[in-house]
Design a binder for these strands. Structure first.
Length: 209
DNA sequence: TGCACGATAATCT
DNA sequence: GATTATCGTGCAA
């Protein structure tokens, strides 16, 4: 039987830690830790894949201006934006620019670090399920981390939120980049970032070269 | 009407 | 094993 390692020490990132441009933030977040402290316990994972959605970008929800749904994208960098799509899935994003500028970063995949049993339970997967299937893909990530509308529009770097960003638990590997996945508009823009050689990223091998 | 997806099946190497 | 096709689902515009 493998010994259970003690939970890693994770320190909260502050807003000052976050780069001030959305693209820089999307790159910066690779290797950092996403944490959700739930009633049932802590869920934490290494962020291994992100995508940036920018001003003037037809694929961004903010493209047509502020609506009731996308308002969090226009908040100062560090706020969550959660939305529901395809009748099945929640997507977790974080705002990336100044107050009033609608940009964000989509969390696409994470490597489970802590609360793995909770993740399995949320995903309704057996204990035998492979670790890399728990949070590979934005819908799976949200499900594993118990993300829903209750954590929409919260400040993830205010030092006290249940959903927050933490320091890296280990050094990150080389950064890769590619086109974004699953969109039709502005599909040629290279705004997806991932940790190379990670088994926990989504997409085809070709995209992850 | 169409979507920042995932599970499954079909069709490859 | 890897890539590609199909389709359900609820909601925003």
């Amino acid at each position: 039987m493998p010994l259970t390692a003690p939970p890693p020490t994770i320190h909260r990132l502050t807003r000052a830690d976050l780069p001030k441009s959305t693209v820089a933030l999307a790159r910066y977040l690779i290797g950092k830790t996403l944490v959700h402290d739930t009633r049932a316990g802590r869920i934490a994972g290494r962020i291994v894949e992100t995508e940036a959605y920018l001003v003037g970008d037809a694929a961004a929800h903010s493209f047509r201006g502020m609506t009731e749904r996308n308002r969090p994208l226009f908040l100062e960098r560090g706020h969550s934006y959660v939305y529901f799509i395809y009748g099945n899935h929640f997507m977790l994003n974080i705002s990336g620019n100044r107050d009033g500028v609608g940009e964000g970063v989509l969390f696409r995949a994470a490597e489970p670090v802590e609360g793995i049993d909770l993740m399995r339970r949320h995903r309704a997967m057996p204990a035998s399920a492979k670790l890399e299937d728990l949070a590979r893909g934005p819908g799976r990530l949200a499900e594993a981390f118990a993300i829903d509308r209750s954590v929409d529009a919260i400040d993830m770097v205010d030092g006290k939120s249940a959903l927050w960003l933490g320091t890296a638990v280990r050094k990150r590997g080389a950064l890769g980049e590619s086109v974004r996945i699953g969109i039709t508009k502005e599909a040629e823009r290279v705004l997806r970032y991932y940790e190379r050689n990670s088994k926990f990223v989504s997409g085809t091998n070709k995209l992850n070269a």
